[in-house]
Amino acid sequence: MSKIHVTATVNGDSVEFLADPRETLLDALRDHLGLIGSKEGCGTGDCGACSVLLDGRLVSACLVLGVEAEGHEIETIEGMAGPDGTLHPLQRKFIEHAALQCGFCTPGFLVASKALLAKTPDPTEEEVRYWLAGNLCRCTGYDKIIRAVMDAAAEMRGAA
């Protein structure tokens, strides 16, 4: 079974990898590119822990094949902070609000929330909750996550 050579842009960097056609984009990111921030919680698109942006669109990396990344732009949790390490407001607010306990779902929540705020800078609590319905958290009961997203949105609107 031959592998396919894939060229893509990940977090602004041009990358190449060899993918078995059965491997997902999540496998490629984690196993071929060493980007372990995207997590596998289910492998079936039900938990959101592998959320990434594909050409700016929020997707589950476990539901995209690695070979489908050819020629596309991908953004992962590793690309969220600035090049000098300055945290994105969402990242900062998640820490400040104690919006994580085990932290395993956190990268997915952050990537998904970033996609929400790009589309809807002033979301209601209900909009945040429905947008994030595909991101499962078992530790927090979501309360502090929702507060962190709302607070980050407010700060980003103020800063803009």
Partner: peptide
């Protein structure tokens, strides 16, 4: 106070079982 592992966990650096 801020949790000491917060930065690793919001940047994707924290290493879990499969990492």
């Amino acid at each position: 106070v801020l949790r000491p592992d917060g930065l690793d966990k919001v940047t994707g650096r924290a290493r879990y079982g499969a990492d």
